[in-house]
Design a protein around this nucleic acid. Structure first.
Lengths: 233, 233
DNA sequence: CGCCATGTTGACCCAATTCAACGAGAGTGG
DNA sequence: CCACTCTCGTTGAATTGGGTCAACATGGCG
């Protein structure tokens, strides 16, 4: 493996984007010596709901979905995780099996970090622990928002919200289409509905001139109108 | 104020039930000297969404609901918090305004603890910080479950689940009725639906012989059947 | 070229919301 | 004590939203 300077955690830019920035030099060195960088192909499973993770996965590049299977057999996507995010920290912290599955939506590069290198700083480095704590507090707040959305909003509202989210967080290509090309099924799994209804709802937005589609690609035409949909009915 | 032995945090039984058990004697002493015990009447607001809390509320007695207002004007109850639970820790940790409102469902006794007495141990007492961290990890997992339920399950399934939850967590009186008597509107706000539909769904369960109602009181007759509803359709 | 996964549409049925009306208990003030 | 009102629970009926099954299109990809 070509372990050059960029694969040393100390120099990893990703570190600036998450709680790892609170780690000390020695801790990072330890981590760098034990981490395993993995290349993951689009569609590959990083981990599956119910597995016990021996560590966390730090996303170096690419985008993944975190989902949970419902009793009725449908997947619900709970989060889309990208560069800089750490997967599996929740289950390492509570030393339980994961409640979520992680699947790559694009080719990815992730670093697997054995849990001992997380657990130890959690005991000894309060700055790190507090950074993680703050991060989880944020996640909890987002989760509350999602609960309310799922419980109270229509598919149309949730779709509008996700389209805006995708543009906000992943941007567009030069032609103005959303950079992240989720399949209709994936979008449906985020929204929490059947793909047929998702498609119908999207088609309606298209007819109203708020979005534009070309194959699986989607472009937002009227951001304001979408925002308006998200809020009122 | 009758500050007897039971009002010293060091001796508070509640402490055994939450992260405060990880606090050291001196920290508890400090806390005891600065906390304010408050009596809160049924229906009273403990705090409102958007407020900046100067500390956390430790529930000594009674039951409260934590809810968030949706854009469409309906309240969504996100959690029911009871004896031993700490309210407002999330917003203190991330030093933001609360995203939730807390209202008493019964007469309550809560201790208000100024945030400094939380923040300081978070910096200096890793055992405490880790206890809080673990607790939040649990909450996050529950939140994921709720998201999936809201997104994928019917009102009937969610109602069945909540009835079982209420029995499991708050028990029944001697006649077998659920101890915690939520109003139909509150149950609807937990389930995430209109009270009319909630009532209709409950009535159906009654006709099927799975539950029994007397005024606002509810009794579970067939736990197994309810469990079956929760899982399959 | 043909295959398989994905996207799309129709039609039907059940789930859920909404508005409207009414009933039943719980104060409250005369 | 009664009448009044207020909140809460309950039911009806109309309408819309959403799920499901089946059929068909389409578009990469071997």
């Amino acid at each position: 493996m070509s372990d050059h300077e960029h694969s040393r955690c100390e120099n990893c830019i990703i570190r600036q984007m998450n709680s790892f920035k609170a780690l000390k030099k020695e801790e990072l060195k330890q981590m760098a010596d034990n981490k395993k960088t993995k290349t993951i192909k689009k569609g590959d499973i990083i981990f599956k709901e119910g597995e016990r993770l021996g560590g966390v996965f730090c996303v170096r590049n690419g985008i993944s979905k975190l989902s949970k299977m419902s009793d009725n057999g449908r997947d619900q996507i709970v989060k889309i995780a990208t560069k800089g995010e750490v997967l599996g920290h929740r289950s390492v912290i509570s030393s339980e099996a994961t409640n979520l599955s992680a699947v790559a939506l694009e080719d990815m590069e992730v670093c697997f970090i054995p849990k001992s290198h997380i657990e130890e700083p959690l005991q000894t480095n309060p700055v790190f622990t507090n950074a993680v704590l703050k991060h989880m507090a944020q996640e909890l707040k987002f989760a509350d928002d999602i609960i309310v959305n799922m419980a109270q909003k229509t598919v149309r509202q949730r779709l509008a919200e996700i389209l805006l989210y995708l543009e906000e967080n992943f941007g567009t290509d030069k032609e103005g289409y959303l950079y992240l090309q989720l399949s209709r099924a994936d979008i449906a799994d985020v929204v929490g509905t059947a793909t047929e209804l998702l498609i119908r709802t999207l088609t309606k937005l298209k007819k109203e001139g708020l979005v534009l589609t070309a194959g699986k690609r989607i472009q937002i035409l009227d951001k304001k109108a979408l925002l308006h949909i998200v809020e009122g009915l």
